[in-house]
């Protein structure tokens, strides 16, 4: 006796995403009533923290990549449909996309920072990321994925066990640290609003001078500004020891 609408309602009751079907007029009315009821359930009100955080990160990725196009501002005062009044498409101009592409490369590089991967893998990841998102390939062609290189930031001997050293390569700045014999590099830019982090005075964490966010030495977010959603961890940067030097993989300076 299971009609598709019953299954639809059952999914809502089980807090699941309902499957598609071709509804009758009655089905639509029933679905509407069931949605209203399901949405009124006491446990259905708040977004999950993890979701809010994850989306924040995705939006951040996009925002960093596309500096706001000054011309693409919503115009106020329009009495017509707001949706058509604002130029959704303008953020996707070729220029903006090119910048997005480059920045994505940086992000991808940072994400592959577990130490295994260097340039080549970075390229592959980048292709995957841009490719999956925009079918247009002109951005890909203009992308210069080999603009990074390993750059020396300190002598390996200068970085004793437990030590933390700041470094600044222009495009990338952060902190080196040697813990349990392994060298780590994390970004030194606060994931809240992009201020440069300071090493805490006892040297056991990073603190943001702007709004007081704090991070552990490994980059995990510890405290965040009041009212802010949870902050992402500091990105790890690819790091290696080569010829007695500590090197970080970073974009070449212009």
């Amino acid at each position: 006796m299971k009609r598709p609408i019953d299954r639809y309602v059952e999914s809502l009751l089980r807090r699941r995403r309902p499957a598609d079907f071709v509804p009758t007029e009655d089905d639509i009315a029933i679905a509407r009533a069931a949605i209203d009821l399901a949405a009124a359930a006491p446990d259905a009100q708040r977004p999950r923290e993890a979701f809010v955080e994850d989306l924040r990160r995705r939006v951040a990725d996009r925002q960093d990549a596309a500096p706001e196009p000054a011309s693409a501002a919503p115009r106020s005062g329009g009495s017509g449909s707001p949706a058509s009044a604002w130029p959704l498409a303008s953020a996707w101009s070729p220029a903006a996309r090119r910048i997005r592409g480059r920045r994505r490369f940086l992000t991808a590089t940072a994400l592959t920072a577990t130490g295994v991967v260097a340039g080549v893998a970075g390229v592959a990841v980048d292709r995957a990321v841009t490719g999956s998102e925009s079918p247009a390939t002109d951005a890909d062609q203009e992308l210069t994925p080999t603009i990074g290189s390993w750059q020396t930031v300190a002598g390996a001997a200068d970085l004793a066990e437990g030590a933390v050293l700041p470094f600044d390569l222009g495009a990338v700045s952060g902190f080196l640290r040697r813990a349990s014999g392994r060298v780590q590099a994390v970004s030194g830019i606060c994931t809240h609003q992009g201020c440069r982090l300071h090493l805490d005075t006892p040297g056991d964490g990073f603190v943001c001078p702007c709004h007081g966010a704090t991070f552990s030495l490994s980059g995990a977010p510890l405290t965040r500004p009041h009212g802010s959603s949870p902050l992402p961890a500091l990105p790890r940067l690819p790091v290696r020891i080569e010829g007695g030097n500590v090197q970080v993989y970073a974009p070449n300076q212009a």
């Binding site: 807090r15 995403r17 309902p18 209203d36 399901a38 977004p47 501002a73 919503p74």
Partner: peptide
Amino acid sequence: VGNRQDAEDLTSQVFLTALGPLR
């Protein structure tokens, strides 16, 4: 929509679409 998964997907779409062109 009455369910979390769809609500999350649609919320994501709203922000990913809207925040780019916003002044």
